[in-house]
Computed example of a mutant assay.
Amino acid sequence: MSGRTQHEPEQKTGRSKRKQLPLWQETILLLGVALVLAIVIKTFFVQAFYIPSESMEPGLILNDRILIQKVSYWGDGEPERGDVVVFKDPGGWLPPIDSAGPTNPVAKAMAKIGLYPTGGHLVKRVIGVAGDTIECCDEQGRLIVNGHPLDESDYVKRGGATCNGPMPTNGACDEKWSVGPIPGGHIFVMGDNRSRSADSSQKMCQSDETECVPGDEFVPVDLVVGKVFVLLWPADRFRWNTRPDTFEDVPAPSS
């Protein structure tokens, strides 16, 4: 007699059901994955910072939230003239209060994964790179890089000075100065608010100084964290940050 007997087991027609994790375990797993992704993004791609002073006015003002990208400086990539960069304090550029960073435990935790700004960093514009010579200033008060005068009228705030590179000792333009060639692996940076910025120009040794260390005005490229690419907050001032065209015309340094 054909057919299946009453006691013959039926064949399995589908895969056994996969065991599902309890909700609490699934939540912990998802949070762990999100944490790892946040750390990877902060380490290799994007990080949040804030503007700690008025030194980058008028484009970036106190407490603005910015994002920096790190991709441009991967491998052999280095900062270029005109980039606005975030870098670690080379030593003594910042007062202790600005180096402390967040004190709230939640803010500290968020800072570690790049979701909250950290302390001990500065934001400045790259004016010169390795090999460059910078002079201040021509008859129109413009900085000169490798013989090329920079048109910085779109973003520089002179703050009462008559030039774009006032002497840090008195904030005036009654003396000319020059610096360079910039050593390899270093950059020369300045704030856009030229009269109110603790930058490379303030670290230059003056003729009557005895305790100044020559070379302190240059920032090691290794300390650069990344390039500012967007002003994120406040929302009404959101904009992409680009390199000014005037830097495209700067010639390569003479050997």
Rank of each mutant, 00 (worst) to 15 (best):
L35A: 10
D138G: 05
D89L: 09
R18K: 11
P79W: 03
Q69T: 10
S153P: 07
A130E: 11
D83N: 04
I66P: 00
F87K: 01
L94G: 15
E54A: 04
N104H: 06
Q20F: 09
A38H: 00
I97S: 10
R65K: 03
S53T: 15
R81P: 15
I144G: 15
L23G: 10
V40A: 05
S153G: 09
Y116E: 11
L35K: 09
V46F: 10
M110W: 08
L62P: 12
T27S: 04
D98C: 05
L37F: 13
I51H: 01
Y73L: 02
N146W: 15
K42G: 00
T133P: 10
I144W: 08
G119Y: 03
N63E: 05
K70Y: 00
A100T: 13
E78P: 02
R125C: 07
K124G: 04
P105L: 15
L94N: 09
C136S: 14
H121S: 03
G131F: 06
D151Q: 01
Q25T: 13
E78K: 06
G75L: 11
G82W: 01
G77T: 03
S53D: 08
E57T: 01
W24I: 08
G92K: 07
V85L: 00
Q69F: 00
V106S: 04
E139S: 05
G59L: 08
P105T: 06
A107T: 07
V145T: 03
A38F: 00
R81F: 03
A100L: 08
A107E: 05
G141H: 10
I28N: 04
E57S: 13
W24V: 14
A111N: 15
K108A: 11
L21Y: 10
P22N: 09
I39W: 13
G32S: 10
V126E: 14
R142M: 11
L29T: 14
G59K: 05
S72T: 14
R18L: 06
L60R: 01
P95H: 13
G131R: 04
L62S: 12
L21M: 13
V156E: 01
M110S: 09
I113M: 07
A109W: 06
D98M: 08
Y50R: 14
G147P: 06
L31I: 14
V156I: 12
L37Y: 15
G131W: 13
I28Y: 09
G119S: 05
L29D: 07
T43F: 15
E152Q: 02
P96E: 14
